[in-house]
Design a protein around this nucleic acid. Structure first.
Length: 423
RNA sequence: GGAGGUGUCGCCUAGCCCGGUUUAUGGCGCCCGCCUGCUAAGCGGGUUGAGGGUAAUCCCCUCUCGCGGGUUCAAAUCCCGCCACCUCCGCCA
């Protein structure tokens, strides 16, 4: 069951954190009230249940008129137990329902404010000066057309807007990125995983995606299954309802899966090319550790992402996402945004979140420590989201003749080729 | 999709037909002790797990026999639904 001691002890802190992310602080009070009535209902039920049990023992050991008399009393208690049990169950449900609405508490270190209040932590690499090189950069769609790397027209014909086919070297480029990302992740201690992309409601809700992000999620009503928007979901649910021994921590996984997103509310945004699509493939990093360790682990995930983008020779910046833009589950989030020349902007390529105990509580993921059993912390981070990485690689590594130079680290996957050229 | 079978405390297993001291039997493993040059063997004891109460590693309570309902004063045991696994058939990559 959910441990509320921290929330009780830090009710003021919790209210403050709620305010910071724009959620109603009354929710904290509501939760504490629901918790109280749940507790008293449970206590009442347990008292009656104990009495019933004791009477039952007596019934079993007597016979004749004594038994008949006892049974009268025992039936009465049984009735009370039944209603107390129902009350208790209802109070538990009430509590669980109100508890689910509570977002994770934003870290005090996260910048205050909303979507636009992020803080830029650093810039890595220099955007190319195309003017100095004497040519105007093409956007990824134009490059993709010339090199026949993907086909958005036929994607739309077959599946609708925001779908695409990766073709030829484009398909090979994705597989190269997958292969390299998984290899590097494995070398860094992450166990490669290919998880299911359809999950039950529990997994989706437990990771926090049925809250404010629910509109973005594909659902199959006939089967009561959701299409995941990231393999974070099956990787988090992997250890649901398990107790992991402390000496097996941290557990690190790298999942490769398709990701499905409705992109509701983004009509008209990023409609060109494959920058924003309803489906893409992604390698995702995921860690289970302790809350105390989670902050250092978060930095490690960020460092992994920075090294990856650096090795792909992409210029990028790192931002510290503001409290109001964290989503339900994260206490802190860092995004790496790569420079996209044709847009003249930095755009999100990777994102890493520390969810502390939020997902672990909802999914029943606990650790066994010397001083007892506690929820773990979960963290996730993008290793490589294929379409956006392809966009960034194409645009940043394009050459005046419309070809694209292959980053050094990817060349082994192209038989040593140094460029992608028109067929 | 169809038919049949199975699901018990870390693992194996008894109990289920015939509901009641089941706080679930036994073995393995594990822990403690004895014995023994050492080790093994042997002997004795302990050992389901989770949640909660409490200052508390004492103690107490609740839940726990795949999950959820039902019947009953009482369910591992009877009834219904669901899930997972196994075997066979069908279909299929």
């Amino acid at each position: 069951m959910i441990d509320l001691r921290v929330l009780r002890d830090n009710a003021e802190l919790a209210r403050e954190a709620q305010r910071r992310r724009g959620a109603p602080p009354e929710l904290v009070d509501e939760i504490l009230r629901a918790d109280e009535s749940r507790r008293s209902a449970i206590a009442a039920f347990e008292r009656l249940r104990a009495e019933q049990k004791e009477l039952g023992r007596q019934v079993a050991s007597v016979s004749g008129t004594d038994k008949e008399q006892l049974l009268v009393r025992v039936r009465e208690v049984a009735g009370q137990v039944k209603s107390a049990e129902a009350t208790q169950a209802a109070r538990k449900d009430d509590f669980a329902a109100v508890m689910r609405q509570l977002p994770n508490l934003a870290s005090p270190e996260a910048p205050a404010g909303g979507e636009d209040d992020f803080v830029v932590l650093e810039h890595v690499g220099q955007p190319r000066d195309f003017a100095a090189e004497g040519f105007e950069p093409l956007d990824h769609l134009e490059l993709g057309r010339r090199l026949q790397l993907f086909d958005v027209e036929r994607g739309a014909k077959v599946s609708g807007a925001r779908f695409y086919y990766l073709t030829g070297d484009g398909a090979m480029l994705e597989l190269a990125l997958v292969q390299l990302a998984l290899q590097r992740a494995q070398a860094a201690g992450f166990r490669p995983m290919i998880p299911p992309a359809l999950v039950k409601p529990r997994a989706m809700d437990g990771t926090g995606y049925l809250g404010q992000a629910a509109a973005d999620v594909y659902y199959l009503p006939d089967d009561d299954l959701y299409l995941v928007g990231t393999s974070e979901v099956p990787l988090a649910a992997y250890h649901s309802d398990e107790i992991l021994d402390a000496d097996t921590l941290p557990r690190r996984y790298a999942g490769f899966s398709p990701c499905y997103r409705k992109e509701a509310g983004s009509y008209g945004k990023d409609t060109r090319g494959i920058f924003r699509v309803h489906w893409f493939d992604k390698v995702e990093l995921f860690s289970y550790t302790t809350v105390e360790e989670s902050y250092a682990e978060h930095q490690r995930l960020l460092q992994w992402e920075k090294d990856w983008l650096t090795d792909l020779e992409l210029p990028f910046r790192v931002i510290d996402v503001a409290a109001g833009d964290l989503g339900l589950s994260a206490v802190r989030k860092f995004d790496c945004e790569a420079w996209i020349p044709a847009q003249g902007k930095y755009r999100e390529l990777t994102s890493t979140s520390n969810c502390t105990e939020f997902q672990a509580r909802r999914l029943g993921i606990r650790g066994r420590f010397e001083d007892g059993i506690r929820p773990l912390a979960t963290l996730n981070g993008t290793a490589c989201a294929m379409t956006r990485t392809i966009v960034a690689v194409l645009e940043n590594h394009q050459q005046p003749d419309g070809s694209v130079s292959v980053p050094e680290v990817l060349r082994p996957y192209f038989g040593g080729r140094k460029t992608l050229d028109a067929a």
